[in-house]
Design a protein around this nucleic acid. Sequence first.
DNA 1: CGTTAGCGCTCGAAGGGTGAGAGCGCTAAA
DNA 2: TTTAGCGCTCTCACCCTTCGAGCGCTAACG
Lengths: 348, 348
Amino acid sequence: MELTDRKKQILKIVVEDYIRTAEPVGSSAIAARIERRVSPATVRNELAELTEMGYLEQPHTSAGRAPTPKGYRLYVDELMQRQRLSLRETEEINAALRTRLKELDQIVAQAGRAVASFMNYPAYLTTTGKKKLTVRRFDLIPVDEWNCIGVLMLSGNRVKSNLLRMQLKVEPEQFPALANLLNAHFTEIPSAEMGEKLMGLTEQLPAPMFLLLSQLIAVAGDALEEQQQKVITAGARALLKLPEFRDAEKAHALMGLLSDGKEHLPVPTDEGPMKILIGPENVADALKDTSVVVASYDIGDDMRGLVGVVGPTRMDYAAVIARLSGFADGLTRLLDPHPKPLKEDTDT
Amino acid sequence: MELTDRKKQILKIVVEDYIRTAEPVGSSAIAARIERRVSPATVRNELAELTEMGYLEQPHTSAGRAPTPKGYRLYVDELMQRQRLSLRETEEINAALRTRLKELDQIVAQAGRAVASFMNYPAYLTTTGKKKLTVRRFDLIPVDEWNCIGVLMLSGNRVKSNLLRMQLKVEPEQFPALANLLNAHFTEIPSAEMGEKLMGLTEQLPAPMFLLLSQLIAVAGDALEEQQQKVITAGARALLKLPEFRDAEKAHALMGLLSDGKEHLPVPTDEGPMKILIGPENVADALKDTSVVVASYDIGDDMRGLVGVVGPTRMDYAAVIARLSGFADGLTRLLDPHPKPLKEDTDT
DNA sequence: CGTTAGCGCTCGAAGGGTGAGAGCGCTAAA
DNA sequence: TTTAGCGCTCTCACCCTTCGAGCGCTAACG
């Protein structure tokens, strides 16, 4: 059986109608919308074949048709016309991202909220791809006798700081030496190796310094770990507006997945900028009847983050794809210039 | 009409049964549970009077009775026996809070998740009461020609840091002077006054330094602002498990309120450690048929934060109150010693 | 041979009727 | 004051019917 042009056109109409209404589409509705005028009966014949070919399905004999995942896939790959964002939308996205430059985490969190509210689907973001994070620089600021601040600069220009309580007194003059030591031995290595290295220094240092050092290393390890696997989610409640999640049980399950993070999707195909996973294409069981669209963005320092959207399989792919790539671009632009100095082109 | 002891006993049974089952309680169920044996008919007489007095209501003639807000109020104020946490529970709470000491924000976020999952109701937390936050100390760490790290220590021992891009070159030698300037003029003042003060310095400083300074002040202002009004929420999805939020509409509305934060409840009565708001006692409309229990905890530095739980009016007050105060105590203990030096009683 | 009109069939959603059960209020007796 | 008993009310669950959407099939048409 062949996938004629008319079949494709019909499939497209079905998908788009179903995306809008979440209800099976009938033959006459299609006939009314099709280009060259045909009767519903003709459409029915085509529908029967499309169903047989696996692109459509009927919830029950003699309801309208709804797309199968295979149908959506064809739609996304071939039929869908890529949307261009209007200038106004681009503006809006950039406005949503515009912010006094803060910490990466905050930027990303804010972006997450913006994505979710733009799309009306839950969004999730990570700030690391596969590459391992390392500490690039340590600093210590003495505060008073018993406290000091440890400042870490991580790859991707993240800065983390922490108040450290000292259990034993350390002379202020020793701080620079400590920082040097840290910078010499503990930068640019994965967190796993830190503990090991630390052991090697046990006896070369006076106890107070060693204690402080190990505290800072622990903090650094935690920070790296946390940054490495943190997943930010936003807008989960948008699910509740969708008819497919009217059932509290389902919504709860998916929200659980979102708030747990971790078990998510791989970075979009090794070099493609965007990945679309439809229904059963998802690995995670809880996502089997949802779709996910992920894009990646540049954090700078040769690292990438992920920004994704989760929705029902009938999600508005064209809109989501366009907007998501808008956001990814925006984030990249927002973050990428970070490391490189501005060349005087200050944006007021 | 008088509120006899038996009436109270019956009210108590109704409340506790209704809390458990979310279904109106019938006379025979009560008769079975009441101390001195009486017949359902007797109970019915009492119920009728309790209803007339406004403590109970019937969803419709001849269903069982459910407590009114007034009924819950009486229950909470007089009838409920305060639960003591078992040693095991106290342990569990402390275990949930135990963490390598990190930033306040992270501790609080983690505590939020723990609270929510312990109670099975959504939790929210703030890290400030009424008192205004200020910056207590500024530091600047030069990174390279174009970047430096600004480190802020805020009241309540919060530490914030930020990478600052410099638009104009600043000599490394100037950093200490800048930091001194900041510490001299911009510490311990509310963020509102910062801008003003900054203006006063416009002409006394070379442009590059002034630019950097104003950048840092802006960051400080943001950080203060953010810390001041940040509300962390966790476990919103727990709502979906409750029969009263089976309706997606309702759940969505309440989740909206939670994720927006802000519009919440005042600090528990000026000195009381805990406040309970039942149904219509809430100011916010969206909370009119939910209850809220809030406790406050000590951040140190004479500041207090809030930790609260939102649930249906039939929430398990006794359990929530006990656990919440456990958490508040735990947080206080976790945070309060921060500023004061440990006296060698290291907890391994 | 593709297209179309027509017809009967299927299925779900909505409405109405019925019976069962919970639980009440009232009354009269203990 | 308490209790047994009885009739009443209201909801819930179930079944049945009706209605309409939409299909598939067949036969006729160009």
